[in-house]
Design a protein around this nucleic acid. Structure first.
Lengths: 220, 220
DNA sequence: ACCGATCTCCTCCTCGCGGATGAGGCTCGC
DNA sequence: GCGAGCCTCATCCGCGAGGAGGAGATCGGT
């Protein structure tokens, strides 16, 4: 049972190279190539490949949009559609991230090891796994600070009430607004805010908001 | 030039299996095995492997702590230490994420395709890449929703200069600080800020900061 | 030549913010 | 019981922020 692969990239030379790599494996087969997103949709429609290797930056229609369309069309027909692997040039390509959200199963650096790409195709085809590039680490560090952050030591010194007003101030509320939602006087709020700023070493509530977001202390 | 691999897992049967897989490759070599975190540290100390395959849940000392220690010790000696790949049982293991933060280069599902593991070892050893399991998708969906918002339509109405001061204000700078870094008078900054607030429908710079973070308009 | 947008800067005015300081009431643990 | 910590509220004071309104300069398009 061979895995049917479709190639989508605007550079013909690149497609040629990837095609060589894929064809070198007995269980992989290239069932078609496309030079832009629109061609890709038609290709998938025609050939129903198992896996699509999709470039992001392309003329006519980019890879993210094409990914959305392909998976959207498949879902509309009650099918799952092909697994899509996005090929990226840079490490943590924002477009690649968008493609993942659009439903792509993973992304691989264009200069990755050929064996890695092959393993990625098989892994993705198997269903569960998703392959990523060095991005993962950066991803975790950049997007996860919302969670599991060491939570700055100074923050622990805040009392219960101080954390309450901190949270509200972090959402952009004024002192009077905080006072109203917490059913205390504005003077009390000012005292708490003042204590919080001192404890956290911040200048004003503006920096408090920055601090809150930078340390993932805002719940949404 | 063979890649020297160390195995760390409390289940001997599992180690045996992985060992078989690794040894099946001419360019990979197993230089030692360990059954818990402490043994792992000693093993790394003794053999200086290139790559460590590390389990998370282990008696005596878990994989996350061991990862921290190993990389911490290496850093203390000015060395980079081995690349560490964490082996996880479940998809998005919180422990695995912790290990990545501790410095591990990637994580692979224990039931992943053997070829995938092999490719991961080579990829990680090559330096740049990090391998992940199906977690990546979930990660992106869980932690990235902050970014790449459609970028509010009102934001497009800002002029070039207005965006400049917006960006600086979003970082928590005061008007005078912005004036100094932009080499204009504070009065000018106030004008721009005022225009920005009006255009974006915000009350004050505090809400401006919230707006900036909520819409992923802060670059770090 | 003219208009509109943008950037620059100014003054006057009001108000919210934050620091300093003090104080009364509450619930702990010693 | 008694102090420690916390929550509550108040007053005074200085300052930065933001709105209103005006003004000169530049530049691109009509």
């Amino acid at each position: 049972m061979t895995i049917r692969v479709a190639l989508v990239d605007d550079q013909q030379m690149f497609r040629r190279g990837v095609s060589m790599i894929v064809r070198s494996q007995p269980d992989l087969e290239v069932v078609g190539e496309a030079g832009d997103g629109e061609q890709a949709i038609a290709l998938v429609e025609r050939e129903s490949p198992d896996v699509v290797l999709m470039d992001v930056r392309m003329p006519v229609m980019d890879g993210v949009t094409a990914t959305q369309r392909i998976l959207g069309d498949a879902a509309a027909r009650g099918a799952t559609g092909p697994r899509i692997i996005v090929l990226t040039t840079f490490d943590l390509d924002a477009d690649a991230a968008a493609a993942i959200r659009a439903g792509a199963s993973g992304f691989v650096l264009k200069d990755a090891d050929p064996d890695f790409l092959i393993a990625a195709i098989r892994t993705v085809h198997a269903g569960t796994a998703v392959v990523a590039a060095s991005a993962t680490r950066a991803l975790l560090e950049r997007f996860e600070p919302t969670e599991r952050k060491p939570a700055p030591p100074e923050f622990d010194t805040l009392t219960g009430r101080e954390r309450d007003v901190f949270a509200l101030a972090a959402k952009g509320l004024s002192n009077s607004e905080i006072a109203r939602t917490e059913y205390v006087s504005e003077a009390t709020v000012k005292t708490h805010i003042s204590n919080v700023l001192t404890k956290l070493g911040l200048r004003d509530r503006v920096q408090l908001v920055v601090f809150a977001y930078e340390n993932g202390l805002v719940d949404r």
